[in-house]
């Protein structure tokens, strides 16, 4: 995880395109400038970054389900609950499932667990847009390699 670059996801553990589910891992770093301010003497992951992590897990799921034909963009956080704190050094396991596929939009539900305990959950809405340019597409391809996106999952 590189917080300052919003690289939240480290590894795709399990992508089931047919079942429309994904599990990813995200290792919270021990140190980050974010923790210098949030908070001095009591560093913890900001809740908005937990939502962002669930959104990115949902994003990889959608890239898989829609075979990289569309880019999901977070449009609405329908519900989000931060049920417990996430600290530097924690390994987050994030699950997401696609709950609805509309025309040009999709909805997911996601959960973050640390050590098996639920720390946050959310219901998210995404708009699905064409990749805006080749740079963006190649950037996503590079990140896909880094996080171990299973290309065979989207092969024809």
């Amino acid at each position: 995880m590189q917080l300052e670059y919003f690289h939240m996801i480290d590894r795709i553990v399990d992508l089931k395109v047919d079942e429309r589910t994904i599990v990813v891992e995200a290792q919270v770093p021990m140190e980050s400038t974010i923790f210098e301010g949030h908070f001095p003497g009591y560093p913890l992951m900001p809740g908005v970054l937990l939502i962002e992590s669930m959104a990115q897990a949902s994003g990889w799921l959608q890239l898989g389900v829609f075979k990289f034909e569309r880019m999901p963009i977070l449009a609405a956080v329908k519900e989000a609950k931060v049920r417990g704190s996430v600290f530097p050094g924690d390994l987050m396991s994030i699950e997401a499932s696609l709950t609805h596929e509309g025309s040009g939009y999709a909805m997911t539900e996601a959960k973050i667990r640390v050590g098996g305990k639920l720390r946050a959950n959310s219901a998210l809405t995404f708009t699905l847009i064409p990749f805006p340019n080749a740079d963006m597409r190649s950037h996503m391809d590079a990140i896909a390699k880094r996080v171990g996106f299973p290309q065979q999952a989207v092969s024809p």
């Binding site: 449009a75 609405a76 609805h100 596929e101 509309g102 025309s103 939009y105 909805m107 809405t125 708009t127």
Partner: peptide, 17 residues
């Protein structure tokens, strides 16, 4: 989008937005 979602669910269709 929320309305489309509710319509999709209620009528079992996919509005071609």
């Amino acid at each position: 989008l929320d309305i489309a979602f509710a319509i999709d669910k209620q009528f079992g269709i996919k509005l071609p937005l």
